[in-house]
Design a protein around this nucleic acid. Structure first.
Length: 520
RNA sequence: GGCGCCGUAGCCAAGUGGACUAAGGCAGCGGAUUGCAAAUCCGCCAUCCCGGGUUCGAAUCCCGGCGGCGCCUCCA
């Protein structure tokens, strides 16, 4: 089993090979930081973060880069609307973006280069392109001349003529060819500007990615990623200008993730819904309102909920798990219902990890997991097949959906193991073989979950009250009283206690001599 | 108009020529367990949008429909 990856450039799955053996450079096109991140901005980072984890697991030395576009027309316009400086807006939105990434578990990014920190590199590249006859200056602007690139269009599979067929030809175009695109844009009055050989201006959109990826990852990188929407024109142009400049293949593999289909969720879409209070009855109203608002695309849609709003309602791990439930190239539709279903499906994993601690006395989250195939935990044979199947799925173009399925099967197998050996029936600790088998299997579950970036920490809402000791003590009091009632066969009272707690969203579980509780 | 993608159970979703008499999850149903529950376990629950064709063999390939979607506008 070897890794195969779908390459947008060839439109086929190819065996994964790197430019330099053992090393992988990944460049993912990041956001233009002009407004708070929405969930669509998390899709790529989560996927490529997962890809990095998997490559590291396979022994590669991986360098993962996501760029920050902090100079652009949208930034200029937005800053003007808000009456702030472009730099201030960009700085604020970058912070928002990075916080969201950390929250959803994207922690493998090695560099977040900013466009404005690389003006020199971009100018140098533009200079080289002009010198090589691939670009020309025009009244303070610099354009890449598409006709000088023989294989322009090879990534998106379209010819220049096809491209122009459906395009409105803009007025006042003095470019040599309508498809020529800007490398450098002359600045207008009051706009941010950098000095250049062609006069004050700012870089075009595509050049930053070429300049920064080459600086950080070399002239040929291994994986260039981004949303499918970037395939044309952005990636096509990046490719054209990079290869025209260096003469080297720009990227070995082009990976494009499917797009979020509809504006998402959380009841915040409509406006002043409860952000804090619990009004479960309100769901239908919120959803109805939400459904009316999903028309159109997510990105660019002013109604799309921000990531922060989404995370206020749904646990970030749930969102991450949801995003990875589908093959990354497929479009994905997000709704409150879907995320809620995902949350339910995750409960079983948390229950199992709780059971592990109950049985063994140690936290499943403290188990030392393998970080590579070589250091993977040793498991008894009946569980080894799950690892193989999980890795097989991942080897097939990072099929996280299939891998997730295997995770569920592993969960059930471990529960069956516990059930068969009666490990959770009290006194299970005397079954040394059972404990050992269970421990290795749970370690495997956490190891494989870790590849997807989940099950790394206890979910706060799944156990206890999240730190309020008074609640803990009051609950213990109620449980003691109820246990007393049960021992006297006063089930009317014990059930009433349980029912009334259920009304408060608290579930009681009687197990052997122990009673536990949790919030739903 | 051009380029491309998709259509698998109530819902989500793997599988893309032969071990598919089609993973897995959610929901549902039956059983075990329980004082009753919860949790857990066991079992049940699809012939793959429609119609042709290729093939010994197709959910998987080809053609034609129907339906949904993306890009061609500096949206990840």
């Amino acid at each position: 089993m070897t890794l195969r990856v779908y390459n947008s450039l060839t439109r086929t799955k190819e065996p994964f090979e790197t430019v330099v053996p053992g090393r992988v450079g990944i460049y993912l096109c990041g956001p233009t930081v002009y407004k708070p991140a929405h969930i669509g901005h998390m899709v790529g980072p989560v996927i490529f973060d997962t890809i990095k984890r998997y490559l590291v697991y396979n022994g590669y030395d991986v360098c993962f880069v996501i760029n920050i576009t902090d100079i652009d027309d949208k930034l200029i316009n937005r800053a003007a609307e808000e009456g702030t400086e472009v730099a201030e807006l960009a700085e604020r939105m970058t912070r928002d973006y990075l916080e969201n990434l950390a929250t959803i578990g994207v922690d493998g990014v090695d560099h977040f280069p900013k466009a404005t920190d690389h003006i020199d590199e971009m100018q140098a590249m533009i200079g080289r392109l002009i010198g090589a006859g691939h670009a020309y200056e025009l009244e303070g602007d610099v354009y890449f001349e598409v006709s000088t690139d023989d294989d322009y269009g090879k990534l998106s599979g379209r010819s220049v003529d096809e491209t122009l067929a459906g395009t409105r030809v803009e007025a006042n175009q003095r470019k040599r060819h309508p498809a020529d695109f800007a490398l450098w844009k002359k600045s207008r009055q009051g706009e941010p500007a950098w000095e250049s050989p062609w006069g004050p201006g700012r870089p075009g959109w595509h050049i930053e990615c070429s300049a920064m990826s080459i600086k950080l990852l070399g002239e040929s990188l291994d994986i260039h990623g981004g949303g499918l929407d970037l395939l044309f024109p952005h990636h096509e142009n990046e490719l054209a200008q990079s290869e025209s400049c260096t003469g080297q293949p720009f990227a070995r593999f082009w990976l494009h993730n499917g797009l979020m289909q509809s504006g998402a969720t959380t009841g915040k879409v409509g406006g002043e819904h409860d952000r804090h209070g619990d009004r479960p009855d309100d769901d239908s109203t919120i959803e109805a309102e939400f459904d009316q608002q999903v028309a159109g695309k997510l990105a660019g849609s002013a109604g799309a909920a921000s990531v922060k709003e989404l995370f206020a309602v749904h646990h970030p791990e749930t969102v991450r798990f949801f995003l990875l439930g589908t093959q990354y190239r497929s479009p994905i539709e997000l709704s409150d219902d879907q995320i809620a279903e995902t949350a339910r499906s995750l409960q079983g994993f948390y229950r199992l990890l709780e059971a592990f601690e109950r049985i063994t006395g140690q936290s499943a989250y403290d188990l030392p997991v393998g970080v590579t195939r070589e250091t993977s935990v040793e498991v008894v044979s009946e569980f080894g097949a799950f690892r193989d199947r999980f890795l097989d799925a991942m080897d097939d173009d990072f099929n996280t959906g299939g891998a997730v399925g295997v995770l569920f099967e592993l969960r059930t197998a471990i529960n069956a193991f516990i059930s068969d050996r009666g490990l959770d029936d009290g006194g299970g600790a005397t079954d040394q073989d059972g404990i050992a088998g269970l421990t290795s299997a749970v370690t495997l579950l956490r190891e494989l979950g870790g590849l997807l970036g989940v099950f790394r920490q206890p979910p706060v809402e799944a156990a206890g009250d999240g730190g309020d000791s008074l609640v803990d003590e009051l609950m213990q009091l109620l449980i003691d009283l109820r246990t007393e009632a049960r021992s006297e066969k006063n089930f009317e009272l014990s059930d009433a206690i349980r029912d009334r707690l259920a009304d408060l969203g608290i579930t009681i579980e009687d197990r052997n001599e122990q009673t536990s509780w949790r919030r739903e």
